[in-house]
Amino acid sequence: MVTADALHCQRDHVAYLAERGAHWILTVKGNQPSLHAQLARLPWRAVPDGARDSDRGHGRREIHTLKILSISTGINFPNVAQALQIRRRRRRLDQPKRFTTETVYAITDLLVHQAKPAHLATWLRGHWSIENKVH
Rank of each mutant, 00 (worst) to 15 (best):
A4V: 05
A4W: 03
A4Q: 05
A4L: 02
A4S: 10
A6E: 02
A6T: 04
L7D: 01
L7A: 09
H8N: 11
C9K: 03
C9H: 05
R11F: 01
R11G: 05
D12M: 02
Y16D: 13
L17W: 15
L17K: 04
L17R: 11
A18R: 15
A18L: 08
G21T: 13
A22V: 04
H23V: 00
H23A: 14
W24P: 03
K29S: 11
K29N: 11
G30F: 01
G30W: 01
Q32I: 02
Q32H: 07
P33N: 08
P33S: 06
L35V: 02
L35Y: 06
H36N: 13
H36A: 14
Q38N: 12
Q38R: 06
L39F: 09
A40L: 08
R41G: 09
R41N: 15
L42D: 04
P43E: 13
W44S: 07
W44T: 11
W44C: 06
R45Y: 05
A46S: 14
A46K: 14
V47G: 07
P48S: 11
A51E: 10
A51N: 10
A51T: 04
A51Q: 10
R52V: 14
S54E: 13
D55N: 02
R56E: 15
G57L: 04
H58C: 04
G59V: 06
R60Q: 12
I63V: 15
H64I: 05
L66N: 09
L66E: 05
K67R: 15
I68Y: 01
I68C: 10
I68F: 01
L69S: 09
L69Y: 07
S70G: 12
I71D: 11
S72V: 14
S72A: 12
I75N: 05
I75S: 04
N76Q: 13
P78A: 06
N79Q: 15
V80A: 03
A81G: 12
A81L: 00
A83N: 09
I86F: 06
R87C: 12
R87W: 00
R89N: 05
L93Q: 07
Q95G: 00
Q95F: 00
F99T: 04
T101M: 08
T101F: 00
T101H: 01
T101G: 01
E102C: 02
T103V: 15
V104A: 14
I107R: 07
I107V: 12
D109I: 05
L110R: 13
L110I: 08
V112R: 13
V112W: 05
H113N: 13
A115F: 09
A115E: 09
A115W: 08
P117W: 07
P117E: 01
P117M: 06
P117L: 06
H119G: 00
H119Q: 15
H119A: 14
L120A: 08
A121T: 02
A121V: 03
T122L: 13
T122E: 13
T122Q: 14
W123F: 13
R125I: 01
G126K: 10
W128A: 09
W128N: 14
W128G: 04
S129H: 12
E131H: 03
V134F: 14
V134L: 15
H135A: 08
H135L: 07
